[in-house]
C-alpha cells in the first residue's frame, strides 16, 4: 500500500474518540483499527451480529463461527456480545453508532454517497451500507482522491446510484481531509507536501479554503 494511503488510514484513526461505538466498513476502513493504541476504549460493531470485535486472526487460529461482515475471522474481547441481524440493525437505525467509516465511489458536495453500484459493471448488492450511511450519527468516508483513471471522486453531484443522500460529514483521502459543509467541500488538512491548489485541481467541485493556516496530516495517533 502506498504511504499516502497508509497515512490517510492513520489520520482517520484519530477521528475515533474514546468511548465511541464504531462500525468500520469493508475495505480500507477496516484497517483503521490497526492504528488505534492497544487498550483504546472503543466498541466496534459489525453488521452480522457482534459488538466488541477483537483482533483479526489468521486461519490457523480462527473460530469457524466468528467473522465480521467482510468475512474476516475476528476474535472477542472481554465484554463482547453476539446477537441476531434484526438486533444488529436496530442498533444502527436507532442511532447507537457514534461513527461509521465507509468507502466511496463518489461523494457529492452536499454529502451524497455512492458506494454500492456501477450500473453494467459492478452490482453485488447493497448489504448493510444504506442503513450505516443513513443512520450512523457521523459518517466519514475513506477513499482515494481520484479513481484509477485520475477522475475526481469528490464531485458536484454523484452520477452513480446513491447509497444515501446528504450523509457524509468528512472525507479522508490520500491527499487531504475535507469536510462537507452547507457551503460545499472545505479543505481541512492536506497530506504533508501537497499544495492546496493541487488538492483543488483533483477535486471535481469547488474546494473552499479555511480562514486559518492549513495543518498537515499527523500520521501518529497523538496519544
Amino acid at each position: 500500500m502506498s504511504s499516502a494511503k497508509e497515512r490517510m488510514i492513520a489520520r482517520a484513526a484519530r477521528e475515533i474518540a474514546p468511548g465511541m461505538v464504531v462500525n468500520l466498513g469493508i475495505g480500507l476502513p477496516t484497517q483503521v483499527v490497526n492504528h488505534l493504541p492497544r487498550d483504546f476504549p472503543v466498541c466496534l460493531h459489525t453488521e452480522n451480529g457482534m459488538t466488541g470485535i477483537g483482533p483479526t486472526l489468521p486461519p490457523d487460529q480462527a473460530d469457524r463461527n466468528l467473522i465480521d461482515a467482510g468475512g474476516s475471522y475476528v476474535s472477542t474481547v472481554p465484554g463482547s456480545a453476539f446477537f441476531d441481524s434484526a438486533t444488529s440493525f436496530a442498533m444502527v437505525r436507532s442511532g447507537r453508532l457514534d461513527l461509521t467509516m465507509l468507502g466511496a465511489f463518489e461523494v457529492s458536495a452536499s454529502g451524497d454517497l455512492a458506494n454500492w453500484k456501477i450500473p453494467g459493471k459492478f452490482s453485488p448488492g447493497v448489504g448493510g451500507g444504506v442503513e450505516l450511511a443513513q443512520k450512523a450519527r457521523r459518517v466519514v468516508v475513506l477513499t482515494t482522491h481520484t479513481d484509477r483513471a485520475g477522475n475526481p471522486k469528490l464531485k458536484e453531484t454523484c452520477s452513480l446510484p446513491l447509497t444515501a443522500r446528504a450523509c457524509v460529514a468528512r472525507i479522508f483521502t490520500d491527499m487531504a481531509v475535507i469536510d462537507v459543509t452547507p457551503r460545499g467541500f472545505v479543505l481541512v488538512e492536506t497530506l504533508g507536501g501537497i499544495p492546496a491548489a493541487e488538492v483543488a485541481e483533483a477535486t471535481g467541485a469547488p474546494l473552499l479554503l479555511p480562514d486559518t493556516d492549513l495543518p498537515e496530516f499527523e500520521a501518529s495517533h497523538g496519544r
Binding site: E47, D84, S85, A86, S88, F89, A90, V92, R93, G125, V126, G127, G128, V130, E131
Partner: peptide
C-alpha cells in the same frame, strides 16, 4: 435477484 438493505431484509422476515 431482489436486493434488500440488510437490516430491512431482517425486519421483513421478523
Amino acid at each position: 435477484v431482489e436486493f434488500n438493505a440488510q437490516g430491512i431484509l431482517a425486519e421483513r422476515i421478523r
